[in-house]
Design a protein around this nucleic acid. Structure first.
Lengths: 215, 215, 215, 215
DNA sequence: TTTTAACCGAGACGGTACGTCGTGTCTTAGT
DNA sequence: ACTAAGACACGACGTACCGTCTCGGTTAAAA
């Protein structure tokens, strides 16, 4: 999380249970109140902890919420569904399911907004949330290349750039659909999105009622 | 905006100049302070206006910032650059340029985050910002269809759904690149993005050093 | 009151009815809200008049309330009850009855408090309220001297000083009883007070159950 | 004052020095600004304290000023000057000296005016200010009875009633002279007042130029 | 065992912004 | 020239939250 019994080890150690309780309380408060009405005193009370304990472990509301929201993305997995298209649809649906939860909705964009003026927060978001998600893109591409669905990348620099692009397209689309357009990224939407991602715009209008074998 | 001399015309009319000054002051404050440090008193002072005048015209900080940021998107145009690919690159670059400005960065995601718990704010964002942008997608598609680059849409419902999808992909990618990944959506990125959008993932690694004639 | 069609007489004349309505509305507002909650907008609304009209005729809340309260003391009279003792009791009872009304209670001490830092207001209170009351003291003394109950005053300076003293003792006792001690200045209290005033402290404990022929 | 570490003693204790500083700052603000211009923020700043600290200890401006003014009356004493007349003159002069101070002038009548619509405030004034003063009346009478200047009171109910009356006459006269008539209660006035109080109106005009041996 | 040092709860503290309200001025249109 | 209506600049209100601090009291590793 953030500490780890720094150097001197005398004295009473920090309660490990408190961390868990605090992060859970933060998510609960996000659900009930949303980002802007959430207060650290309220989180502390919900967690059965003093406000001081919160400040001893996190520098502020932003950092706390990043950690609380980051845990939501721990459950993201990339099970092998047999094809690149199916893998994409699977992971996008998972991502959409997480973003549909109010604690993610409320918290995620708020800390991103804050991070535009706070480099440390930006870095924390990158390591706690973004990188964790980006690994799935790399993993999915490797799997597709192993299957022969995608050609190998000769240039590693270009490969990284491409992975970043794909990540922004995938994550951005789901986030925008869910938060800005404020509509559900359901199965139908995900299938259409995966088609565009794989084959481009031209592929779109051709098979509106195409029979689907998954979901 | 929000008012317009409701019905009765008695009393001193609202100053039209104040609206302009307030929205400009809001953007200036966003640049200097960012969303979370922005105070309505500061905005009022910058605009040479009393705080009460702000509250008479906007219900709160969120609504004010939506209007202030929405004006930034007024300059979005879709000049005809001859091909769908060039049109996409052009408009995406414009969108990226706006999002690169600190007043947009600070304000946009913050109000989106707030809107997850406020239906009225969500609606305001939709009409003031989202719909304004979405029109460009419809316009670009119509132009591409006229050129023969895209087939006609037989089903209007499906056509709307598709436009929504494209909009979320385009806007989402730029927003995510700019705000979450926190990197510039520059010419190179935009070209790569447009290629994926048009022809899909498979098109990506084939022409890494393809000569480019625009930007 | 304060104006009177100054010199130029062109244009629409001021409504005389408005003055009456405003002062009555002020007293009503004093009863309902008290001094500190009273607002000029509320008074204007009660009087069916615009706030501007109020400011055109009075400089502020203090002056308005002085005038509104002053009218309450117009009803003070000094009917000849045959003896100095009876006259005193009669006028004190009248004064107590006025001070018992909530519009006087709320307003009077408030403007006095304000007047400690505002010479113009002090002067307005003196002419509108204090002098009006003090005349009764002079009148009562003259009558008592005519009856032979009090000796004539040889020195006019000393006579004025004495009248002021008596006035402060009488008015002060009733005001303090009513507002500070917050108890009613009823018949029994007034009789005891009159006895002290006429014959001094020593007269007090002797006839507690003395038969009374008036009130 | 008002608190006293209620029951549980957890948490940081309230600063005792703050109370003193706040009351002194309140009196200073009364001197500089008067009641109506006095703001709690200004008092807080003068006391080097946050506005919240004020609200934690007093419910409002009225209560704060009552406590600040009440302390002024702590210095009232009743030194034995040998005769009832001298005792009265002495204590009245002290009372007048306090009322002559601008912090008392500004604050006292204002809170009395407010108290006409606030029973809790009335009670606070009674216990903090009125009762403290009334004790001097009882003490002075007991001393005069011991000297044989006044007869003993057989009926305790009547004795209390009489003390109240004397108190209202004395305090009321000084208050009215100082605040309403807005003139100084100086030595000459006090001597005349004491004569009336002791021997009644009839005693007044007889010795206009009587030689005085005190003041 | 006894230190002993860091932990913990509670809650007061100095600050700052909030959104509301009242004041006194002004700018309209209407009488 | 007056009026009613209401917008305006200003500034105080009382509340809420922030992040810090100061207490009394606990807890576990080090001495």
């Amino acid at each position: 999380m953030q500490s780890s019994t720094p150097a001197g080890r005398a004295g009473r150690p920090r309660s490990a249970a408190a961390d868990t309780a605090i992060l859970a309380a933060t998510r609960a408060a996000l659900v009930d109140l949303g980002w802007s009405k959430l207060t650290l005193q309220d989180v502390a009370t919900r967690a059965g902890v003093a406000k001081t304990t919160l400040y001893r472990r996190w520098v502020g509301k932003n950092e706390l919420v990043v950690d609380a929201v980051a845990e939501l993305f721990d459950e993201l997995r990339l099970p092998d569904r047999g094809s690149l298209a199916a893998d994409i649809e699977g992971v996008v649906l998972q991502f959409a399911a997480i973003l549909a939860r109010p604690e993610a909705k409320s918290g995620l964009m708020a800390v991103v907004a804050e991070s535009t003026r706070d480099a440390a927060l930006r870095e924390r978001i990158r390591t706690s949330i973004v990188e964790r998600q980006k690994r799935l893109v790399l993993e999915g591409r490797a799997r597709a290349q192993a299957r022969g669905e995608l050609p190998a990348e000769p240039d590693p620099v270009e490969a990284a750039r491409t992975a970043d692009l794909i990540f922004d397209v995938v994550a951005g689309a789901v986030v925008h659909r869910t938060l800005v357009s404020a509509e559900a990224a359901d199965g139908e939407w995900v299938r259409s999105f995966a088609r565009v991602l794989l084959w481009g715009l031209a592929s779109l209008p051709h098979q509106p009622g195409l029979p689907q074998d998954h979901e």
